[in-house]
């Protein structure tokens, strides 16, 4: 294609956008809301993943051995724990070592306990997959010689729940919104197709090829989509960073900075916007050309 022809076609696309300013603005708005919700879902998901990693580092389970367990049995239990597929690391702390640790913290107060140590031998266990938390804990409990298991179940359960909700609800909401956006864009383009039906009929009568007739509408769709993508990206970036910098949820767990996901979101928004735009325009112009042979 000649550059001149390309420029003409792009101009035609921009011209029809301007002619249908309000409808174009409306469809950009709808697409922006769709992309924003998608972006939010993605950010929540990323943050939950991040929280998982954090929890994984923080949240270890401590299993205590029964009093009658001997040193040899303790070594065997440690080996048994390490053999579990979901266990990455096991640290054995004898009750004497444990008492020493507490003594460092609480000092002389515990001096009297030296003779009759009330503590139990402990195994500090790190898990690989927190979603298998419950199963693994039950397995640990069945091991002969294990008395009880201490863990912070609430956090891990909450995280698993949040992730599942974000995943399922997110996927459905995003799918629904994409369909709505597609529908709105297709209708916007349909309006511009109708407002330009005279041009289309002239184009066809003087021998324009199919793609030539379609091209300006593609341009229109691409512009709608990429403008929506850029606007959503800017909004999400601004709002997210304000939230992140001004609110702290917990001193040790922070929201991930936008910079960590900036390019995934940029590519996703622009691609998502443009694909929706192109698809929407292809749908409506194709339909029109099929129905109107003239």
């Amino acid at each position: 294609m000649r550059f001149n022809t390309f420029r003409f076609l792009v101009k035609e696309g921009v011209r029809s956008l301007r002619q249908n300013f309000f409808m174009s603005a409306a469809s950009i708005l709808v697409l922006v809301s769709c992309l924003l919700i998608t972006g939010c879902a993605y950010l929540v998901y990323e943050n939950v993943e991040h929280a998982f990693d954090w929890a994984y580092q923080q949240n270890v389970v401590v299993a205590y051995a029964k009093d009658e367990v001997t040193d040899e049995r303790a070594t065997a239990i440690k080996a048994e724990l390490e053999a579990q597929s979901n266990v990455t690391q096991v640290e054995y702390i004898s009750k004497e070592a444990l008492l020493d640790r507490y003594k460092d913290e609480f000092g002389e107060l515990l001096e009297d306990l030296q003779a009759d140590n009330p503590l139990q031998d402990a195994f500090v266990i790190s898990f690989q997959d927190l979603t298998l938390f419950d199963e693994t804990v039950s397995l640990v409990k069945t091991i002969d010689g294990i008395d009880k298991v201490d863990y912070d179940q609430a956090l891990s359960e909450t995280l698993v729940k949040v992730r599942n909700v974000v995943l399922t609800v997110g996927v459905w909401v995003i799918a629904l919104l994409l369909i709505v956006s597609l529908f709105i864009i297709a209708n916007t383009i349909k309006l511009t197709v109708y407002s330009r039906r005279r041009e289309i009929s002239i184009m066809r009568s003087v021998g324009a090829t199919q793609w030539f007739v379609r091209f300006p509408f593609m341009v229109e769709g691409i512009i709608l989509g990429s403008v929506a993508g850029a606007v959503s990206y800017g909004l999400l970036f601004g709002v997210y960073e304000i939230i992140r910098q001004n609110f702290t949820f917990s001193s040790s767990l922070e929201l991930i900075p936008f910079a960590v996901v900036w390019w995934q979101l940029l590519v996703g928004f622009l691609a998502g916007g443009m694909v929706t735009g192109i698809l929407g325009s292809t749908l409506s112009i194709g339909r029109y050309l099929k129905e109107h042979t003239e």
Partner: peptide
């Protein structure tokens, strides 16, 4: 070349551009 009863000109284009349109369309 096709001539229509209702002329089928594009109102928003000048005479020159209306005629040039047919040439642009064929590249």
């Amino acid at each position: 070349g096709i001539v229509f009863q209702d002329f089928r000109l594009i109102d928003t284009m000048t005479v020159f551009d209306n005629v040039a349109f047919a040439m642009r369309v064929v590249g």
